[in-house]
Amino acid sequence: MTENSVTDNSWGGPAGRVSPRLAKNALRNWRERLIEGLLFCMAAVSVLTTLGIVYVLVKESIIFFQHVRIVDFLTDTRWTPLFDDAHYGILVLISGTLVSSAVALAVAIPVGTIIAIYLSEFATARVREVAKPILEVLGGIPTIVFGYFALMVVTPLLQRVLPELPGFSLLSAGLVMGVMIVPYVSSLSEDAMRAVPMSLREGAYAMGSTRLQVALKVVVPAATSGLAASYILGISRAVGETMIVAVAAGMQPNLTFNPMEPAATITSFIVQVALGDLPHGSIGYLTIFAAGLTLLLITLTLNVIGLWMRKKYREHY
């Protein structure tokens, strides 16, 4: 065998002299690896986002808590971070958040559940085909528009029934927020109910149950954890909702559990501070990160519980 015949051999040769075909293969492999690495980096951006959120909130909050004792932050009953006599009692903002969320859920949970039961167990395919996009549209309306709606339509309407209601109130913000959350609750609940196997329904029908009995006594109990998960995600939406409360609930901090009063929530406080002109690094600037960290911890806890519940009901069947 001569040197020449080795290089002609397209199946490869001794080390150092690679055939064009193998070289092409190697290049192809290399390119494939590169692309895979690139795609992995794109997927990793979402992890970086989470790390970024935690980093920013924790970093600024640590500086904040060097000025303010954590005990005061959690127990003080006044929230006046921008006054000379500054108090930082997050309870004040949490109370506003809780009241507006409670009002919202009082609307969203019953209405959302009834819609879900209706769509999953009663409605014909045609009704469902029309209703679901409409609900999706309702969920897609910008929240600032809902805020305008609460301020301009719902508050005047409520004032006719309750003349003492002020122009800004947690009640009207909460009610509109509830309408906004209905699609989230109904679509997740409906998914949970549709995941209930047909055989359970057929069994109940064979025993002579009516539709309502099947829905309430078979399907709803079987989908309980899914329903609970949808409620919890609804709560997390309500807690994190910003523009509706910023527009319609007024922004003055107010430790109250009366929905007829105006009050600030965690989110609307952040908006209020961001609208002003606070210098970077000032204590006022730092408070919004402490408030944001509180908000993130609340919603994260809710989300984890919700996900855990959904996983549980998925494993069921």
Binding site: S46, I53, L233, R237, G240, A274, F289, L300, G306
Partner: peptide, 28 residues
Amino acid sequence: DIIEINITNLAAVPSIVYGLLALGIFVY
């Protein structure tokens, strides 16, 4: 698994928290 759990969690983070992230990272 981490990436997947993370994406589900991110979808439920309130939008204003993204604003704080942007304020800390992008703006400053």
